[in-house]
Design a protein around this nucleic acid. Structure first.
Lengths: 348, 348
DNA sequence: GACTCTGGTTTAAGCGCTTAATTCTCCGCT
DNA sequence: AGCGGAGAATTAAGCGCTTAAACCAGAGTC
């Protein structure tokens, strides 16, 4: 039986032979076409097409020390916020000739580190990271290799790199303010006990809004996790409450949580949203749009963040080493009004 | 002003000098530790740690011709089906030492090709692809370079490679059968006119179920697109219908479409779901779980598909060239009952 | 004491590309 | 005829790693 010829990527040398020129000419056709005579170039291009030649980027990277690929590590693709960031980053990268590859950490710190390591090994031009928690060492490693890294949606004490933030304090403030303006006076802030930095900031914003207002009370409710089920559980706890009056306005620290609360309240027959209790979520996830009741929420503008991050990265890449000054871009969150707070507005 | 020392990745040679050994020994410490004396290895490891050395994967790839990275091109990360596939693939890859990087085509054929090209340039070990439409050339290029590629959720006439399919005919069948079993007799199949292959298959399945049943009618309704808004539009068209009776059971070819129909029917006050009309979606997107009414749907099992794809890829990678026989794994879809068909079951 | 092992280490030849430096041609000028 | 150039193509030196082959003690053997 005849040995199947092992298929493999043709090399530049193959192309060169095929076109009857030297390997350098092939390279020139690809990288500096103006240096080669049109007739020759044409012959080379034909050879490339005929052989199906695709440049070996590893070799190119090795020779030049640069590549146009950048890596992005996302905390959790199940959360549409990060998908939005990916979109924005791709948008931003596309325009300037950078190529974006993604890694999904899937809420796993180890995986996040794995991807950072992978991208470092691959010598990507730069990295976009939406970190899950303090990830100093991974970030430091990148930076110590002179590889730009920009952080999304996380303030990292003690690390200096370009960062894109959403003003999470403002997120909480906008949410609470909206409830207060629609007439709520007994607010509740629902979050997981887990001290995740954006949660803290949003809590602070809610506090500020309440403090500014007259005669508005605030209670903090701990949920179990940040997902739908956690919200349902909170609603059921609320259903069983005696003594203290129920809140009339809830700021849920995530949309999922908000949806869960709305659902739980409804099925437990304690209260209707927004009739009895208004609910505001945070982040404007896909799920907010299509929940049991369309959720008013404060959008983080993931796409904008991703785009800004790509822009910052490009800026750093284009600045001569040493002259770069790190910047922080802060994206302003925006209220998105939907049904879950509509009644209150009409009512009062 | 003193020139800032240009930070860069330390090389193996740096490590070798630092540890007072040759570069080959460093390589051996990393790749075949059993070949080097423990004392030396220890010294080298210390040097690696001290310098923060990270292997240059491009150089390694160039030298060995192989890498453990595989690429996955996803049609649309906004669709949770593909996120599920990514999860499954990662799961599958993780266990066997393959490293998965993602590219989001975002429904853009050009971008899908770009990613295939990128991965080909990067000389990844293999590719996982959920193609959007006929993408013969991109696939052929991969294959002609001897790079394994496995297709997800798409039957590609004329291309032979390993494939993971969901039985889309069965999807339609299961959906329609469920409606019929709950007592519906006037079915409607709602899909975009656009001839997307899975749509055709699901339509065929629906037809088969109807043909098998007694006294059940079927109409086909064309929607504008496969998203929520398309469904709303269909509902409004239905609302204005005269002469012909409304269907009592709807198979929507996607969950978004199903949600849109349920929403449109409700707001137009024509009918309630599931009270008057039962609705079944397809795919089991995240949106199905948290729509205006929880949608009964037929799940495609994206995670299972991703995992199977990774397994097929590994199989091909481990088979000596030429001996590999392409296989197709078919995942059986499964009905997920939720509220949107509950009433019908109780009613009839 | 010459001889073979053998475990440990180094040497050196690539892998496929880029690019500075070089060589080669062919022209136009004097 | 001879010379300087411009333009086009080639040569060759790496980039950072892997790995087969060569080398080099020091320990057994007879």
């Amino acid at each position: 039986m005849p040995a199947t010829p092992k298929k493999t990527n043709p090399s530049m040398l193959d192309v060169a032979h095929h076109a009857g020129v030297s390997i350098a000419t092939v390279s020139n056709v690809i990288n500096r076409p103006e240096k080669v005579a049109e007739a020759t170039a044409e012959r080379v291009r034909a050879a490339i097409a005929e052989l199906g030649f695709v440049r070996n980027d590893a070799a190119r990277l090795l020779a030049t020390g640069t590549t146009s690929s950048i890596g992005m590590v996302l905390a959790d693709l199940d959360n549409s916020l990060y998908v939005d960031m990916a979109h924005g980053a791709q948008q931003g990268a596309d325009g300037v000739g950078l190529r974006l590859v993604l890694g999904n950490a899937a809420c796993d710190m180890r995986r996040q580190d794995d991807y950072l390591h992978l991208f470092d090994e691959a010598r990507v031009a730069g990295v976009l990271l939406s970190p899950m928690e303090d990830s100093l060492d991974g970030i430091e490693r990148m930076r110590s290799h002179g590889r730009p890294i920009v952080l999304l949606n996380y303030e990292q004490a003690g690390v200096e790199c370009c960062t894109v933030l959403v003003d999470n304090e403002q997120v909480g403030y906008v949410a609470a303010r909206h409830l207060i303006e629609t007439g709520c006076t007994r607010l509740a802030f629902v979050a997981a006990r887990d001290e995740y930095q954006p949660v803290r900031a949003r809590r602070a914003g809610v506090r500020r809004a309440v403090a500014e207002a007259q005669g508005v009370s605030l209670e903090t409710i701990d949920a179990d996790g940040l997902r739908f089920e956690g919200g349902q559980a909170v609603a059921h706890a609320l259903a069983g409450r005696t003594g203290r009056p129920l809140p009339d306005g809830v700021v849920a620290v995530t949309d999922d949580l908000g949806n869960g609360i709305a659902d739980g309240l409804h099925t437990a027959l304690v209260a209707e949203v927004p009739g009895d209790i208004a609910v505001v979520g945070c982040e404007d996830n896909r799920s907010a749009r299509s929940g049991p009741v369309a959720l008013t929420t404060v959008e983080l503008r993931g796409a904008k963040m991703g785009e800004a991050a790509a822009a910052l990265l490009l800026e750093e890449l284009n600045t001569p080493a040493g002259e770069h000054r790190h910047r922080t871009v802060t994206v302003r969150p925006a209220l998105v009004e939907r049904a879950s707070t509509a009644q209150a507005r009409l009512g009062v």
